[in-house]
Write a protein that binds this DNA or RNA. Sequence first.
DNA 1: TACGCCATGTAACGGGTTACATGATTCA
DNA 2: TGAATCATGTAACCCGTTACATGGCGTA
Lengths: 187, 187
Amino acid sequence: MLKYALLGFLSYQSLTGYELEQHIRASTAHFWHARLSQVYMTLKELEADGLVASVVELQESRPDRRVYSLTPAGQAALHTWLAAPLTERSLAKDPLLLKVFFSAAAGKDALLRQLRIQLDLHRQQRTVYSGDLPGMAAELVASDPKLQVDALLWDAVRDFGARYEDLYVAWLEETIQKLERDFPATS
Amino acid sequence: MLKYALLGFLSYQSLTGYELEQHIRASTAHFWHARLSQVYMTLKELEADGLVASVVELQESRPDRRVYSLTPAGQAALHTWLAAPLTERSLAKDPLLLKVFFSAAAGKDALLRQLRIQLDLHRQQRTVYSGDLPGMAAELVASDPKLQVDALLWDAVRDFGARYEDLYVAWLEETIQKLERDFPATS
DNA sequence: TACGCCATGTAACGGGTTACATGATTCA
DNA sequence: TGAATCATGTAACCCGTTACATGGCGTA
C-alpha cells in the first residue's frame, strides 16, 4: 500500500526518499504513515519492479541525493490501483479502545489517567487541522490551476481528519465524565 | 497486541481458539480483529510463554476442542499491560482515504463509484451498532452484577464505533455532493 | 558543545495475511 | 447436493518496526 502512496507523490514531481517521508508526514500522516527506513526499502523494491527510476545527484557539503521519478510502468500501476474499487470497509486497529474494553480490572484511577493523556494528545492534534493546512492547498492551486481538483480532494481528506479528532475529543470528554460518575472508586 | 486481547477474553472464562475468534468478531472487531489462523498461532506462543494453559476436550461426532485458560502469569501480564499508559495517539491507516487523496487522476466517475460503494458499506455497518448489542451487555450484567463496570466500558467502546460510522457516512455523503458539484466531468 | 537537520541505508525481528490441508454434522 | 458451522492447524510470504551505522552543516 505504501508503494502506491509513493507512486502517487512521484506522479506530481520527482523526489528523494527523505523528501517523500516529509510529504507523507505533512499530508497523509493521519491516515497513512511510514518510517524513513521503510520508505527507502520500498523505493528499492519499486525500482527493481521498474515502476520508478533513480538518479544520484552529487552534492558538496551535503550527502548525495538519490532522486526518484515515475516510469511509464509506474504511472500505469498507479492508475490501475486508482481504478480498482475497494469493496470492503477499511478495518481499524486502535490499541486505546482495546485497552479501555478490558480496563474494568485496571481500576478507576488508572483508566482515567489513561484517558486524560489521550484527551491532551487529541486536542493537540485537532489544532493541526485548524492551522494553515487549508491555506497550503490554496497556495499550490494558485501556483498551478491544474491542481484544482487535486486540492479539492486533499481538502476533503483533511476534513475527515479534523472531524475524526473532533469525534475522538468529544468521546473522551464524555467517557471521562461518565466514568467519574459511574465507575465505583477503587477500594 | 492480539496477545492481550486474548488474555483479556480469557480473564472472563476459558475458551477455545475458535470461540475466541467469535468473541472478537462479535465485540472488538471494529477496533481490533484477527484471522483464525493468527489466533491459533498466538495461543501457541502464549502457552510457550506460560501465560495460558490448555486442555484437550475429546468430543465424539465433532472435532476435539483445545480449551485455553489464563495462568497466574497470564493474569499478571494482562494487568501490567492495562496499567501501562499509552502516551501516543493511535495511528490509523485507511486505504480508502489514501486512494481518495490521489484520485484526481482517476476521474470523476470512477471516484464517485468508489465512494458510493463505501457509503453502502458504512450505512450497513452503522445498523450493527443500533442493533441488539447494547442489550447483549445488559443481559450479561443481569446474569452477573460483578460485570457492571465491564459492561459500562463495553458500551463506551461500542458507542465510539457507532459515532465513527456516523462520521464516515456523513463525510461520504457530503463529499459525494461536493464532488458532483465541483469535480469537472471527465471528458 | 550539543542538538537538529539533511541524507542514506542494512539487518534482525515481529506481526499479520493468504493459501493449503482435513473432516464430520446440520440445514436448506 | 451443496453450503455453513464446528474445529484445528502449518508454511510461505509480506509488510512494517526497531536498532544499528555514518557523517557534515547550521544554530542556539
